Amino acid sequence: MGPFRTGILYGIVAVVVALAANLHFLLLDASGTPGWILAVIEDFRTTLALAAFLIIGILAALRTTPERLDEGVSYRSLLLRDCTLAATLVAVIVGIALIIMVFLQATVLSGPMQTYASDAAPRIVAYIEELGDRFSDPAEPVTAAQIEEDLAPPTLGSLGQSISNFVLRALLLGVAGALVGLLRGRRLARSEEAARRPSPEETRDEKQYPYEYPHGDNGAVSRDGEEDGRKE
């Protein structure tokens, strides 16, 4: 597939990941979920989502194939361009989706998100305290108010940070796509070089019979240039 179709397809997959990572509070009942699960989700969901976006962008770069061949432009250059374009398009699609989600969290979804934060904070603190009792030198204790503040819905001012993350994410996935394009182009160049390289049998024949002339009408010529003397 071309870079646009590939980027859009994998961008939709990335949007699904973003929905699961940022709207999880609509799916989870914090009051009935174990504290360790809530702690793991809140600690690693952003990192795991970014890693998933990177993997999806790399897959998009691996799956894309140049559809339009420009005259005078090498296939390796087209491959580099289209791989970068496909991965960047994934970042653009998921970035727009994340900005919309932040806006929704700050407006219409602020109530459910605040309820989730209020229910999840005490359970996370209880798990952290239970975990700290197992160590002789526990970390500095945290309060439920601190956890609830971290889980609270964003404000409209957070849209600026979302736009900054959008740009950084596009740069990251674009660079990853470019690296994939370079590696694919290098592999293609090696394959073409191997195809042009003579086989060992051909090389041995050339060394053993350096001269070879076409057969005449009335006699054949040997490989060393001498006439065989076979005549009709």
Rank of each mutant, 00 (worst) to 15 (best):
M101P: 00
P214V: 14
L54G: 14
I37H: 03
H215A: 02
S110R: 15
P66L: 08
F166M: 11
I93C: 11
L48G: 04
G2L: 13
F135G: 01
F53C: 03
G181T: 01
V17L: 12
I99P: 12
E193D: 13
I93S: 13
S31E: 10
E149L: 01
A152W: 15
A97V: 03
L183G: 04
D82K: 06
I56L: 07
A51I: 12
V13Y: 12
F4Q: 12
K207P: 00
L98Y: 14
G216Q: 14
V167S: 06
I56H: 05
R81S: 03
T203Y: 08
I163W: 07
Y75I: 07
R45Y: 02
L80W: 00
R81K: 06
E192Q: 15
I147M: 04
R190C: 04
L48S: 04
A49G: 08
S199G: 08
E71Q: 12
T33Y: 04
D82M: 05
G35I: 15
L79G: 06
A60F: 05
D82S: 11
I56R: 06
V175T: 04
R190G: 12
A194D: 09
A87K: 03
E71K: 10
R45A: 02
T203W: 08
T115K: 03
L131H: 10
L79A: 08
D70L: 15
E140Q: 09
A106H: 02
E202A: 11
F25C: 09
G219E: 07
G229A: 11
A106S: 01
T65E: 13
L183Q: 04
V13W: 12
T84Y: 00
F135H: 00
R5C: 07
A139F: 00
D205L: 11
R169D: 00
T65R: 10
P198N: 09
F166T: 02
A178K: 09
P154W: 13
R196T: 03
Y211D: 11
Y10N: 09
G2R: 15
L9D: 11
S74G: 12
G174N: 10
I96E: 06
P66Q: 08
L131Y: 12
I124C: 10
S158K: 14
G11H: 10
G174M: 06
A170M: 05
E129T: 06
M1G: 11
L48A: 09
I8H: 11
L80Q: 03
I8Q: 11
Y75Q: 02
R5A: 14
L48N: 01
I128N: 01
S118C: 01
E140Y: 00
V102I: 12
A178E: 06
G57T: 08
F44E: 08
G174W: 07
R204H: 04
Y209W: 15
R76Y: 02
L188F: 13
V102Q: 05
T203R: 15
S158W: 15
M113V: 02
L48E: 05
R68Y: 14
I41K: 00
I58P: 02
S191G: 09
L168A: 14
I58H: 00
Y211A: 14
L27D: 08
G2W: 13
V125W: 01
W36P: 03
G181S: 03
D224Q: 04
G72I: 04
R230P: 02
G157S: 09
I96C: 08
A176E: 00
E201H: 11
A39G: 13
G216K: 13
L171P: 00
E232I: 05
I93D: 11
L78G: 03
